[in-house]
Design a protein around this nucleic acid. Sequence first.
DNA 1: ATTACATTGCGTCATAATAACACATTAACG
DNA 2: CGTTAATGTGTTATTATGACGCAATGTAAT
Lengths: 251, 251
Amino acid sequence: MLKDIIDNNENYQPGLSIDCVIFGFHDNQLKVLLIKVERANKWSLPGGFIPVDQDIDTAAITVLNSRTGVDGVFLRQFATFGKVDRNKQHFDKKTLEYLKIEEAKGKWLMRRFVTIGYYALVDFSKILPNPIGRYEIVEWIDHKEVPELILDHREILDKALDTLRTELNLMPIGYNLLPEKFTIPELQKLYETILDKKLDRRNFLRKITNIGILTKLDEKKSNVAHKAPNLYSFDKEKYDEVLKNGLNQGW
Amino acid sequence: MLKDIIDNNENYQPGLSIDCVIFGFHDNQLKVLLIKVERANKWSLPGGFIPVDQDIDTAAITVLNSRTGVDGVFLRQFATFGKVDRNKQHFDKKTLEYLKIEEAKGKWLMRRFVTIGYYALVDFSKILPNPIGRYEIVEWIDHKEVPELILDHREILDKALDTLRTELNLMPIGYNLLPEKFTIPELQKLYETILDKKLDRRNFLRKITNIGILTKLDEKKSNVAHKAPNLYSFDKEKYDEVLKNGLNQGW
DNA sequence: ATTACATTGCGTCATAATAACACATTAACG
DNA sequence: CGTTAATGTGTTATTATGACGCAATGTAAT
């Protein structure tokens, strides 16, 4: 991958990259898909470069798809990061030597890269994290236990989560993060996890059902301790409508 | 400006630009600062390039400042635009010939540029639109009467307005768009203009004052037809607090 | 079997926010 | 000096929200 880009850097948008914050939900935890290259001791967000003949949104889809195998999911640009020194230490001379990249060829890697941040919401159960090459580790990590990340990836992740929190007030969420059938308590946990605060069960039920995007199924969750909760699914049509028009108009 | 960039394109971030949507409010109209180069028959958003030794936010401030003379105002990144063909027609061979740019030197201008969009809110009365060079026309234009724009600038403008509308529900607005002293009806007109819908006077007053960011002055607007409205100012401290914490939490 | 217990489902009530509207007040103007 | 077109203040009905109570349900311990 990197070799391809170095040998053919004319084919890629110079000085630009894409980084994806891929969110999943599992075990009542909001997880983030992170990548570790064996030689490094820090993790990073899955990212990539932009072919000159692709829209940036298309390039983002490619990044997401190459790591998760899924497409057609929720993927949204949220911010672009371009501090002067954001990748100063990343591709320095030492690293180039380590990677056996000729200095002339790798010089452009040492310049400042501006990166466009996208965040994705995916169904954890449908994803098989996909390492590219032998030396790469791809893992879901609880967003509360994210280790040190390279460059400004921590800032990017924080901003993504912040955006998600804000957009939670403007749009419905869950369709892309939960399996097809789910319970209200599960959906509530998702909200609580993202917002990092407790919500009242009863008020949550009222508010979420009032939106009119849920279909109550004639089926209960099985194999659970205590009272079996009812299963729900999203009414895709109404969900998409609300997603388009937004909720909580305000004015 | 362009000549400087062509001669020293090593000093600028390649393939990247910045475009600013600068909003002002005057005569009950939401105005946008647009630029027309004499040779062209289309208008464009004020934009610029990114020096390799500057943060992108800093470069955006520079663009805003060079056209308006103001700084320290509200300036916010809202989206990045990078469709493959977004500047296909802009710097084609013909244009390079017209501008007397050698093809070798101008070649990089013909490639796809990705542009980072910022929007600014400024006090109309404090701005003297500032043309750079003799052949440039800078003008405030009512957002409802914006003529044809170059490239995808129409899309950028629309997205900026859309973002502003959404953020109106999340933050207070007006401090940067209105003069120091203003009336409630003026503030309401601002909201109505941005949202493009009528609001009820009495409900607006209640809601806006309940936010707790307004100071009622012991002074009335003079020289007005009909009953003289009271003057208000923003309580900067409380305003900034709300701006930071947001309003309409939702969940 | 019976009981304890954690969790779900449904409901209540007080309070706050919102939408729709009535009426008095003010200043310019003919 | 009354008309007119604004502003300022208040009222009411409806809806949304926040804080709870209590019964129902299924698991697990006795």
